[in-house]
Design a protein around this nucleic acid. Structure first.
Lengths: 234, 234
DNA sequence: GGGGATCCACTGTTGGATCCAG
DNA sequence: CTGGATCCAACAGTGGATCCCC
């Protein structure tokens, strides 16, 4: 056999992919990123700097996770979702993307079978410095694994059932981001003019603006506060 | 009002789009291309040279047709499909792409409502020099409008009904390009490893190699022979 | 000679998020 | 301070066909 050169990406030799890794090993790897700057990690793993979502992609690469392969959790064998969390002085600055909300998909789901539930069942949170700091200089914080407790789960479920019901009936256009305690519905597209085709309850084809589920800032803030005891932490 | 600079593509000022054009006017435009070389047309209309499908795209631009907008015919208002035909000394060299053949779509179609029928109902054929000539030096031939006669239609229908039946039952994988008199089924993908998801008759999800409908070379050869009386013509 | 494989550009969708006006 | 808007890259799909080995 011979080894093809094109598949030997710079980082591939250094990082073993984690599909078969244990939860503890993943957490250990994530812990090793604490204190590192994003530009260091870009350089180490051949990732490009960029705006917005590049941070998440860079950290996934740094953990050795293959991109874009799986539907559902980032780590198919493990059921763990990886999420960055922009934090400044212990304060979460932004809401967190969970997944898209399309009528046809939601009409076929229940909370128990939902993508939102399976994604949030176990999350590796990766705090990252945010705010007025230049993107390249931002440092990674202390990663932690989280699962919703009974109360979290009840809140998420209630929000999801309410929102999913409306979206599945193609009524999402009428829902503002004010709805929902922990989970909210927000636009998700290149710009406000984007429309996708969907079918309403009655089977008519309609054009809708794509929406997605987000976790409210206050919800993830509470998670951080519980883990770090409210102490300032970047 | 003001005019945005970015929408003023080089060719836009010179070529009026043909959505509202009559059939006669379209044919006149196409006739004006006869004898022109592809590199001339690329230069005139800001099209890039390239391989395979670039010829078709270039000629559509030269006719003022918007790309990729419509499902069905190239000219929504007119119901005319534009096809190039690679010809050398009166001989058609290649089969002609018609459209993709996917189980879900075909299961919902009859011959009367099929995309294949509507695309072939009226075609503007654009003969283009082919063979050992360098792509840039190839010249456009004499365009002509065509519709299937009763015999053509019967043959196409019989082939389509046979092939569409098999494909709609997710049995296309077992069909070779040898099947069909005028219409045949061939692979259509970046390479032989590509698979798409589909549902079989019984509702199971299966992975299939994408296939498409093609007109056999002999079928288009017969069309050319009828139009040009068998005389050599490029 | 033709059946199976492949090529290219463009566009739409998805998964990753942050930006910013009011 | 947050709801609505937007940013980016990668990937899949589509529409246009020709390449090339058996």
């Amino acid at each position: 056999v011979h080894v093809s050169v094109k598949s030997a990406a710079p980082h591939a030799a250094a990082i073993q992919h984690v599909a078969l890794l244990s939860e503890a090993a993943l957490l250990a790897r994530a812990g090793a990123l604490a204190g590192r700057r994003l530009d260091e990690l870009c350089a180490l793993h051949g990732a490009r700097a960029g705006k917005k979502g590049r941070v998440g992609v860079t950290l996934e690469r740094a953990l050795g996770v293959e991109q874009g392969s799986a539907r559902g959790a980032d780590l198919p064998g493990l059921g763990i979702e990886i999420k960055t969390l922009p934090v400044a002085h212990g304060r979460v600055l932004e809401s967190t993307w969970v997944g898209s909300a399309t009528p046809s998909t939601l009409a076929a789901e229940t909370w128990a079978t939902s993508l939102v539930r399976s994604k949030l069942a176990r999350v590796l949170w990766l705090p990252v410095e945010a705010g007025p700091i230049a993107a390249s200089e931002r440092r990674v914080g202390t990663a932690f694994l989280w699962s919703p407790d009974a109360q979290d789960e009840a809140t998420l479920r209630a929000d999801w059932e309410d929102l999913a019901d409306l979206v599945s009936r193609a009524l999402g256009f009428a829902v503002s981001a004010r709805r929902g305690t922990a989970l909210q519905l927000r636009p998700k597209a290149r710009d406000a003019s984007v429309r996708v085709r969907a079918s309403s309850e009655s089977g008519e084809r309609v054009q809708i603006a794509p929406q997605g589920f987000y976790l409210r800032r206050t919800f993830t803030q509470a998670i951080v506060d519980r883990v770090f005891g409210g102490s300032a932490r970047s």
